[in-house]
Write a protein that binds this DNA or RNA. Structure first.
Length: 559
RNA sequence: AGUCCGAUGGUGUAAUGGUAGCACUACAGAUUUUGGUUCUGUCUGUCUAGGUUCGAAUCCUGGUCGGACUACCA
């Protein structure tokens, strides 16, 4: 009964490599740069690299690509590790080693010296502008640097001087001697080392020269015996360079494979843009629940398992893509539907008075915590004469197929009784201030002998025992599907209504003690999670994770 | 313009020379004390023009369209 699951192109490559005995085990790595928070695109890469290792009995390292001390910080290292662990727990695996490119700075320096000795690298005194100017273009070859033919001894001496701090930032660089006319611009004597008198988050002030990505990444892979170095498509032009360094150095031949990065509709994914949103305060931080970051999604209430399932079902390939946000939301609902206890909360309240219910009487009704969970159990919910119901659940002049309250209409109060609307009051502005109804005592939930069938069921909260809470309703961060592809500044497409704060929502009494991170389904309203930052004891803040599917809203929209 | 990569329903992803499938979405229906869930069904696709072949989404050639590259970032 084995279900044939088709392989993605990387799994095919790996299975072939394993089958032909090229590798006994695979070894992958996830190489984040600690200069920002991880986002959903990284989640794809995490699921891929760690998932592949798990599936084929291999290993996967965590390696921080920390070769640029100017932008990299320990804060980012910590958040990245936390996020990865959170996802890895859902996958059911863990990283096999925690490494840093900076662990290999000594080794990389030796590699550079080796290339100089082989006549394959030289110290260039040219300025950044000069190097750019002599680089050529896509249609024209570049020009050799006047320093290209220095002797090996001179290069050795100058490079040592660079390391010793004899020169200022930008005064000299070490370049590979390849071909200034190469059609691949990256092979036109690429930079290997630059001078940066900057404090590094791990090596401190030991170094004032730092390797460039191209001279670090492949060699780090090689040092760790990585078999399959998986990265995104934009590195495809780097592959010849990746191979060139490894070949000339004569070290373990790790191989690079590229896949298309994952894009999500109605958001942006580049770290540069996300950093801009944070710095310019368009959001409250990297973990703002509207951000496509792992930490934002966690705070929003997206389960790790939902993110992992999303990555798995969407898969990978090599073509440009924009995945519909709805797919992610589907997986979020799928998880939460199984796990989130149902509770009642009235977001936009209006008073409902049951005129024939005895004043001063309260009963405790048994309500099911989760119809999708056999072991969910029940809870007691107070019910009495005055309730809060949702303002949207009443219409003075209801259209056909409105299965809620209106003059003369009948609904069931969830878990309680069937009521019929008998009247309502309005203030001078025409706002409904109070709805009056009568109830059928014999229609009590679970003991209904009324024989009545009602079309609609609405939620409610008992007025005098209700607690208030803050609720934050989130919507997509951008108004357009692909902000990065639009004309002009992506920030002009920000959805200014992406956050709506409701400061006085009525909730069931039990909800007052909800703990940060706890998740609920507010009946008919959506899934909510207790905010981990802004909740206070006894006064939780609920973030709306995602709405429920709403076929009534769709029906209404048809008009 | 040079090099490289890509093109399958609205979206994402399979089919590796032999029935174009799956998921999401949309639509219709059944069930439902959440207009939720669940279940059933339906619609929609191989960029284009040639070629090879008994047979092409798949292989070949030309074209079209989209993307990446021209940082002392990764």
């Amino acid at each position: 009964m084995s279900e044939e699951k088709s392989l993605n192109f990387l799994e095919e490559i790996i299975e072939q490599h394993l089958a032909e005995g090229r590798y006994e085990h695979i070894h992958t790595r996830f190489p984040p740069e600690p200069n920002g928070y991880l986002h959903i695109g990284h989640a794809s890469s995490i699921c891929l690299n760690f998932g592949l290792a798990k599936k084929y009995g291999g290993k996967c390292n965590l390696r921080f690509d920390d070769t640029n001390p100017v932008t990299e910080e320990t804060e980012y290292v910590d958040s990245i590790k936390y996020d990865i662990k959170w996802l890895l727990d859902a996958i059911g695996t863990s990283w096999d080693g925690e490494y840093y490119a900076s662990d290999y700075f000594d080794k990389l320096y030796e590699f550079a010296v080796d290339l100089i000795k082989k006549g394959l690298a030289y110290v260039d005194d040219s300025s950044a502008d000069e190097i750019a100017a002599t680089k050529g273009s896509t249609t024209e070859p570049g020009m050799n640097s006047p320093y290209r033919d220095r002797s090996i001894d001179e290069n050795l001496q100058l490079f040592a001087g660079m390391k010793e701090g004899k020169y200022k930032d930008g005064e000299k660089v070490l370049r590979a001697k390849i071909d200034m006319a190469h059609p691949n611009l990256l092979l036109r004597d690429p930079l290997m080392y630059r001078i940066k008198h900057a404090h590094h988050h791990r090596t401190g002030d030991k170094w004032c020269i730092y390797p460039m990505y191209d001279f670090a990444h492949g060699q780090c892979d090689s040092i760790e015996n990585i078999t399959h170095s998986i990265c995104t498509l934009e590195f495809i032009h780097h592959r010849p360079l990746y191979d060139w360094f490894i070949e000339k150095l004569g070290i373990y031949p790790s191989k690079q494979y590229e896949f298309a990065r994952r894009n999500l509709s109605y958001t942006v994914m580049s770290k540069r843009k996300l950093l801009q949103l944070v710095n310019e305060k368009h959001v409250a931080g990297w973990d703002d629940p509207r951000m496509p970051t792992i930490s934002g999604m966690r705070r929003r209430g997206y389960p790790a398992q939902a993110i992992v399932n999303f990555c798995d079902t969407v898969g990978i390939a090599k073509r440009e893509n924009v995945v519909d946000l709805g797919v992610l939301e589907f997986h979020v609902r799928e998880q939460l539907n199984k796990t989130a206890p149902r509770m009642m909360a009235v977001l936009n309240p209006v008073k409902l008075i049951i005129t024939n219910y005895p004043e001063g009487q309260t009963e405790e009704l048994d309500m099911e915590n989760n119809p999708e969970d056999e072991n969910g159990g029940t809870r007691k919910v107070p019910f009495s004469r005055e309730l809060w119901i949702e303002r949207d659940d009443f219409m003075e002049e209801p259209p056909k197929k409105f299965f809620r309250l209106g003059p003369g209409l009948t609904v069931r109060l969830k878990g309680a009784y069937i009521v019929q609307c008998e009247g309502f009051s309005k203030d001078d502005n025409g706002n409904i201030t109070e709805i009056r109804c009568t109830y059928l005592p014999e229609s009590k939930s679970g003991h209904d002998t009324s024989g009545l069938k009602v079309k609609g069921t609405i939620h409610w909260v008992n007025a005098h025992t209700a607690k208030t809470a803050e609720v934050r309703l989130y919507d997509r961060l951008f108004k357009v599907e692909n902000p990065a592809a639009e004309e002009g500044d992506f920030k002009s497409y920000i959805n200014e209504h992406s956050l709506q704060v409701l400061s006085a929502v009525y909730v069931e009494p039990a909800l007052a003690d909800a703990q940060p991170g706890q998740q609920f389904q507010f009946l008919r309203m959506g899934y909510f999670t207790v905010d981990s930052k802004d909740s206070a004891p006894g006064r939780p803040v609920f973030n709306r994770t995602v709405t429920l599917k709403d076929s009534w809203a769709k029906e209404k929209a048809k008009d």
